[in-house]
Simulated assay, not measured.
Amino acid sequence: MSEVDAVTPGDRAGLEARVVVRRGGFVLDASLHARGGEVVALMGPSGAGKSTLLGVLAGLTAFDEGEVRLDGRTLDDGPRRRTAPSERGVVLLGQDPRLFPHLTALENVAFGLRVRGATRAAAADGAAEWLRRVGLQDHGRRRPARLSGGQQQRVALARALATAPAAILLDEPLTSLDTETAADVRALLHRQLAATRTTALVATHDAVDAVALASHLVVLEDGRVTQSGPVRDVLASPATRFAAAVAGLNRVVGRRDAAAWRAGGLVLAASTLQTAGDAAAVFRPGDVRILGRAPSGPGEWEARIVRLEQTPAGVRFRTADPDVAVDLPASHAAGLEPGATLALAVDPAVVRFVAV
């Protein structure tokens, strides 16, 4: 099995899982370990198995082989033993806050405490305190229909953390929010997860979530863990094309021979590589520039544009043979179109090589 090992020290055993799920032609085969109080980000393309893995951990999805343990307790042991979702000490929070529409914000938060056995008065007091912690102390009497999307997610987070779960699973919780609201809720998540030392697994498509919330990053592709480690390390040295895209980097696989490293028309000196064979060149799309002349030296090549994409800072175009992303200010992209051929260059000094 693939293994995810998040190694930041914690006071509790944390969350451990080794699971195999077979669904038709798809197989999820992965292991995970998050120490107590640690936040681990889980990233992967759509269909990689992220939600399936969270469903297994929450007790909502059956699995074929393996084991799930939380703080030293065995929750599931394949088909032999299965702990009900309500008895696991695990909360799953997704894009939909799933608030009760007929209850106020205060009553929604208090509901979780009442289920855990708190008296009506204690639940109300606890709910009021958590609404204060998420910045909604003046919204307790409002029902969800009178709250914005960001406010509803704050209430859902308060309801989840108020019950002091052993672990919280966050499945793309910020995707449906606008950029500014998502940033506010992200900052709130960071503060409250740190303050409560809640073990958390955050499934996301956004590298900002990983950087802002997590100490470790796990990349899941096609049901397998393809890379894991400290967030900074994974983003600095992506092991796959998907991880490179998340990090905002080009990762171009080529081959080194006795003379140089080559990928399509791109040729670079590769003195840092010890042996011949496959290696990936890693560099930023912003490091590539358009030449006003024909290519003539190392790091210069001719490429055909295959598509254009808008970015917050301008325009990105991708080329074929090799597949390279190039970032330009919008003002410099006039006249570019798919099918056009350009002479490009990247300074060999900014290129790093990583093993494939």
Rank of each mutant, 00 (worst) to 15 (best):
P144Y: 11
E67G: 00
A164I: 03
T163C: 11
G254T: 10
A239R: 15
D171L: 03
R284D: 08
D206L: 00
L220S: 01
G117C: 05
L92V: 10
G47Y: 02
V354N: 10
S237I: 01
V21W: 13
A17G: 13
P285S: 07
E302L: 07
A276M: 08
I305S: 10
L92C: 11
G292D: 15
L174K: 04
R81V: 11
R289N: 02
T204I: 06
A195G: 13
R116C: 01
V346F: 14
M43R: 05
R143Y: 04
T196K: 05
A34L: 01
A182Q: 10
W261N: 03
A343H: 08
P101K: 07
R146A: 07
V246H: 14
E300N: 10
D257Y: 09
R255T: 15
A330G: 14
A320C: 02
R232W: 00
A207T: 09
A210T: 03
A263Y: 02
G117N: 02
P238T: 06
I290S: 06
S237E: 08
V326G: 04
E87F: 06
T52I: 11
T163L: 01
V7K: 11
A124P: 06
A325P: 15
A303E: 03
A164S: 15
G37A: 09
L174T: 11
L189K: 14
S46A: 09
G265S: 07
L291Y: 10
V253A: 02
G299H: 14
R18S: 08
A212D: 06
A245F: 01
G24Y: 06
A195Y: 12
V350G: 09
E221P: 12
S228F: 09
V40C: 11
H205A: 06
G150S: 14
L136A: 11
L344H: 06
E38S: 13
R114S: 01
G55S: 08
V315I: 12
G223K: 09
R304P: 12
L344E: 04
V225Q: 01
T272E: 13
R141W: 13
G89E: 15
G149H: 12
D76F: 05
A124D: 13
A258T: 12
L273W: 04
G37D: 06
L308F: 03
G117V: 01
D76N: 04
L15Y: 14
L308C: 04
W301D: 00
V231K: 13
D327V: 15
A84Y: 01
S237D: 13
P85S: 05
A247T: 06
V115A: 00
G150H: 14
S51W: 04
M43V: 08
R284S: 13
G265F: 02
R146V: 03
P173R: 07
E107Y: 14
L249V: 05
L220P: 05
P348I: 05
S271L: 09
D138F: 08
L273D: 00
R120I: 02
K50D: 02
F26L: 06
G286C: 00
V27G: 06
R80G: 08
R191M: 04
R143S: 09
V19T: 03
R284Y: 03
T8F: 13
T275E: 14
G36M: 04
G78T: 06
V56Q: 00
Q310R: 11
P230R: 00
A320P: 01
R12V: 03
D206P: 05
L157V: 03
P173F: 10
P97C: 12
R143C: 07
L249W: 02
E337D: 13
A355Q: 15
G37C: 02
T196L: 10
P238K: 11
